[in-house]
């Protein structure tokens, strides 16, 4: 079984047609489904939040069978994720893609759960602590992308469940929960 670091790759990763965008619609739909699952699975376990189309991405090439995805194929597979709401383009030219292995709404729920688990229902926590603090270690929140975190916080802020307050620098930004 082939592995990518800690990640266990499926058998079909060595199937050459997997790396060619299939022209026949039915076949292509199945291929896209497999790619979507693999990308989400990989990003979740490896905590990848952003995929750059023009940068090296381990999944997009397979040195064992000497195949790699074309730009068109990469864009097609990521666009399929965007349609499902599991990804968002970060720029107009589709050069960077934000991967939402949890949807924003799910991230908001995870934040609420995080606050409850750590007794922060009325407490204050900094953004830095959420991302890299001891409390978040081992949870999905560890190392969360700033863009995604801000989006999730905004949802909760609109519902009145917390207030984001700004400090003198970005490092000082904090959150006051009021659950």
């Amino acid at each position: 079984m082939q592995k990518l670091g800690e990640f266990k790759l499926p058998h079909f990763f060595n199937y050459p047609p997997y790396f060619t965008l299939q022209p026949v619609r039915d076949t292509r739909e199945k291929q896209i489904q497999l790619w979507k699952d693999l990308i989400l699975d990989y990003c979740k376990t490896q905590k990848v939040f952003v995929i750059g189309l023009e940068e090296e991405f381990p999944l997009f090439s397979n040195p064992v069978i000497e195949r790699s995805l074309t730009h068109e194929a990469r864009e097609t597979f990521l666009a399929a994720l965007v349609v499902e709401g599991r990804a968002e383009w970060m720029d107009k030219n589709h050069r960077k893609c934000l991967i939402l292995w949890h949807r924003i709404q799910e991230w908001a729920e995870i934040l609420v759960q995080f606050a409850r688990d750590n007794g922060l229902e009325d407490g204050v926590v900094t953004i830095e602590e959420i991302r890299f603090g001891t409390e978040s270690q081992g949870t999905d929140l560890q190392g969360i992308d700033r863009t995604i975190l801000n989006r999730a916080l905004k949802i909760l802020e609109q519902k009145g469940k917390l207030v984001v307050f700004k400090g003198t620098s970005t490092d000082d930004e904090g959150v006051k929960f009021s659950l």
């Binding site: 050459p16 047609p17 790396f19 060619t20 299939q22 022209p23 026949v24 039915d26 076949t27 291929q31 000497e66 195949r67």
Partner: peptide
């Protein structure tokens, strides 16, 4: 017909 698929290299 979905019997085959291609590998372009």
């Amino acid at each position: 017909m979905g019997l085959l698929c291609r590998d372009t290299s």
